[in-house]
Amino acid sequence: MNDTIWTIELKIFRQRADAQRYFQTFQIEINPDEYVLDAIEKVWAFHDRSLTFRHACHHSTCGACGMLVNGIEKLTCITSIRSVTQNNGKLLIEPLRNFPVLSDLVVDTSSMFKALEEIGFNQVASLPSACLPYERKTLEHERSEYQRLVDCIECGMCISACPVSLTDSNYLGPAVLAAAHDASSQPLSNKILEIVDSRDGLWRCHNAFECSAVCPSNVEPGLRIMKMRQTVIAHRIKKLFSRG
């Protein structure tokens, strides 16, 4: 907490309609305790009003500002400048991978939102079910009357980081599968089963766990996909015996 000011260089991905994409460099002075999103907003406010980027809440509840910072998925509103560069250092800012770019840093995440809606994933849940499976035990008896917004902020960063999403546009992706796990904390519905137990669902995941590594919000999609596999395998075995 002081009045330190750093000079940093932002190299920002630019793309306008069908024109050639390029990188543009801006030099700004900023307090390193501010966040990467603040630096981008400063570029927009003082250097180039044509820069497009998505942001809203500035404190990791909305999920709008996921970008690549120096090649890694970061929720820019909670990534302090100090944590990703140094004085006179550089920041490479690119849009998320695996989503079509609308312009500059804005990507089209509609496919993800559509899939999440299909799953029937609610943003508000009871406190125990909004937490991770291994956290639930202590909360279940005393805190079940409370509700809260769930962990997943639908930022799309897990899909951006996933090696399978990189090559296969049909793959549901970690966010959607994690949401399915979340939505199925009650008994597994046939609809969810049909969506996840498919060619493009659970079995496509190749355990790189990159989703869990970049998730800014404690969702642990990797863990949830594996837990969901467990549930589906158990379901299949049960079905096998109930038939016989």
Binding site: N31, E34, D38, A45, H59, R148, L149, S217
Partner: peptide
């Protein structure tokens, strides 16, 4: 409270241009 956080607010001061407001340490 919000998701896994708590958020405290706030203060009040006037500015002319709200396009970029630096964080006041």
């Amino acid at each position: 409270p919000q998701r896994r956080m708590v958020v405290i607010g706030t203060t009040s001061f006037e500015v002319e241009d709200p396009d970029y407001i630096p964080l006041d340490q």
